Each structure stands twice: as structure tokens, then as C-alpha cells.
Amino acid sequence: MTLPVITDNLDYLLVGAWPDGPIGGLALTLILSGLSGLVSAVLGLIPGLGLAMSAGATCAALAVGLLRAVPIVLLIFRLYFLLPILFGLSVPEIGTLVAALSLVAGAYLSYGVAAGIESVGRGHWEAGLALGFGRWPTLRFIVLPRALRAMAPSFVNQWTALIKDTSLAYVIGVPELAFVAAQVNNRAMIHPAEISRFVGAVYGILCVSLDGLASRLARTRSVTVHGA
């Protein structure tokens, strides 16, 4: 890891051409995964509620199933190349990638949302209804806050997947970590193994750290449930 090919290009691998140009490298990977994680969390809640509640469950299942069946690369291509043709929209590369990753990740998260809601004991529903709340107010104010604790590990695990999936941005030229590493390799030409090991180590550190966070959240959830 101390080879000159890494140390000489470390700034470019970490932040791309920034501050003299657009941000890239590891910094852009974290930005893309963070934005996609936030948007997918919101998108996952909507069909997840539909799956957990009887109203709209069939439509939610169909929409989620369709998005889960579409390869992310294909979805990126369709959003980037098809939207300008159909609607005359100029779609930025980063916006395209965040939209594609968020749609697919949100579809996967929706089942975690539904499972989190279903994990809340029936007594909480009965307590809300006994207090005069309707079904949806009970879900919003009583059930959902508790269910979010159960959902947290799924959200973190999905963020782990998003960090790796950002490498698909190369198909539309977004200069995230894998893309700038390929550029460095094309310039150096003689150290592909060292560059690949560096990139793999960076992804490994990020993913292992998030896996540890997910495990910790799961243990916290288990202690809370058994201690309740």
C-alpha cells in the first residue's frame, strides 16, 4: 500500500479533481451512497406501509417486485438515456445514479419496513385504538416509532450494499472511487494489482464498519425487546 502509484495519486483517489475540479473518488462514493441511502429510506417507507397494511398491499407488492427484478445497470441506462428522449429532460449523471440506486434500494427496504411494523406487538395497536386513535394515527404515533428500531439494521445493511453499488456509476462516467482508480491504472499501466488491492481495502473497511454498526443495532434491539 505504500507504493508510489498509491501515494502519488492518493489525493485523486480520495477526492478526485477537487478543489480545482469536480469532487470524485472516495468522497463522491460516500456522497452518492449517503444521498441514495436517505432517499431510499423515504421511498422504502411508502410501499413498506402498503405491504404491512391491507390497503394497497397488492399494488405495493407489484411495484416492489418490478423494481427488484430490474438490474441496476439497466435502470441507470434507462433513466439516463431514455428520459431525455421521452420527456426532453436533461438528466445529470449524479442525479441519475442516485435515482436508480434509491428506487432499487427502496424496493428492498420496503420488506424490512413491513417486517419492522409487523414485529410490533398487537398490544400497541390495541392501546392506540383504545385511546381513540384510528388505524393510521396509531401506526404513525405509536407503532412506527417502535418499528423504526427494528428497521435500523436493515437500513444500515442496505447502505452497505449501496456503497458497493456506486461502482456501477462508471457506465455513465461518474468519477467515484472505482472510476478514478481505473483512470489511475490506465495512466500507470504497471501496477493494476496494487491499485485493485487499495480499492478493495477501502471498500472492505467501509463495509465491515457498517456491518459492525448493523450488528450493534441488532443487539441493542434484542436487549430492548427482552428487557421490555
Rank of each mutant, 00 (worst) to 15 (best):
A114D: 05
V171C: 07
P71L: 09
V15H: 04
P4K: 15
P22E: 08
N186L: 13
L83G: 03
L213G: 03
L217Q: 10
S154W: 05
L75N: 05
G37I: 02
P47V: 00
G123I: 00
S102F: 01
V223M: 13
A147M: 11
G88R: 01
P137T: 06
L32P: 00
V98L: 02
G48D: 07
L129E: 12
V180H: 05
G50V: 05
M1F: 13
V156E: 07
I6R: 12
L32S: 00
P153N: 08
V5G: 06
I46R: 06
T138E: 06
G56R: 04
A61D: 11
M53Q: 10
T224H: 10
V184Y: 04
G112I: 11
A193F: 10
A193Q: 11
L129W: 13
L103M: 11
G50S: 03
T7V: 09
A130G: 15
A27R: 01
S222R: 12
V208R: 03
G204F: 14
V156Q: 09
I117S: 03
V42G: 12
V208K: 04
I31L: 14
V42A: 14
V199Y: 01
L38D: 01
F141K: 09
W18M: 11
G21C: 05
N185M: 12
G95V: 06
V180M: 08
G34P: 02
L97R: 01
T224E: 14
M53C: 00
N157M: 08
T58G: 07
F77D: 01
K164R: 14
V199H: 02
G204W: 12
F155A: 10
L83S: 06
A182F: 05
H124P: 05
A152P: 02
L206C: 08
P145R: 08
M151C: 13
S110A: 15
G50N: 08
F77R: 07
S215A: 14
P4Q: 15
T224S: 15
